[in-house]
């Protein structure tokens, strides 16, 4: 596993643990922690706070009818115990949560060209935020853009560079309204990223004309 240097922020960790974030944001976080032990541990520690909340929230009476119902559920087939997870290979470019949304591996992605060799594929999530895969040919610059909301970018393959630094596999960049940037893909390899936005990007210049067609 390569060393990851750009991680989740505390409020993303809290939001993921509390379960209050849009589906697309949950997806990029689940994908990052599939690659990053540090953030996985941080989420597990934060989940313990949720456990403490559940433990001390108080009680509302539940009638025995529900206990009986639960017992017949576990005796029926639908809730039969599932076996322990078996060891799986973790070397796929797209970790499991992402494969679920692609419906396969990266080879199965239905890319659409959006200019300059860049391709994208929008993944099916709820509409509060958008998740897309981006394919950026080695050495290509993405259009200079700002944000009306949050933009999260996770590198799956290759690397890109902007004013904030260099982002490699597993690194996540968290850009808010203050950041205006021009990411450039590393020259050595085509770059594949998962990007999530909770508001349309603000593009500069000509690229803006194309915006409605790109759905970005």
């Amino acid at each position: 596993m390569t060393t990851i240097t750009h991680h989740l922020t505390d409020d993303l960790i809290l939001g993921y643990s509390a379960g209050t974030l849009p589906e697309a944001v949950n997806l990029i976080i689940a994908t990052h922690i599939s690659l990053c032990d540090e953030c996985r541990a941080a989420i597990e520690a934060q989940d313990a706070v949720g456990g403490a909340v559940l433990d001390t929230i108080g009680e509302m009476p539940v009638s025995d009818a529900f206990l009986d119902g639960a017992l017949s559920m576990i005796r029926g087939g639908d809730f039969a115990p599932s076996p322990r997870p078996i060891k799986i290979a973790q070397d796929a470019v797209a970790p499991a949560p992402l494969r679920d949304y692609i419906g396969g591996t990266l080879d199965d992605v239905k890319w659409r060209p959006i200019g300059m060799g860049v391709k994208q594929a929008i993944l099916p999530t709820s509409r509060e935020a958008t998740a897309r895969l981006l394919f950026i040919p080695a050495g290509t610059a993405m259009p200079d853009h700002g944000h009306r909301g949050l933009e999260l970018t996770l590198v799956l393959q290759g690397a890109f560079q902007d004013d904030e630094g260099c982002f490699r596999r597993g690194d996540i960049e968290i850009a808010d309204e203050d950041l205006h940037h021009t990411p450039v893909a590393d020259i050595s390899e085509d770059c594949i990223c998962l990007a999530v936005t909770d508001a349309p990007l603000r593009l500069k210049g000509l690229a803006r004309l194309a915006q409605p067609f790109l759905r970005i």
Partner: peptide, 24 residues
């Protein structure tokens, strides 16, 4: 609670307390 029964094989007491696991 029925899911707790179903998924109990995934419970790892070195990584989560029961309350935490049920919370998730």
């Amino acid at each position: 609670m029925a899911t707790v029964w179903q998924k109990s094989a995934q419970f790892d007491p070195a990584r989560a307390s029961v309350a935490t696991w049920i919370f998730t």
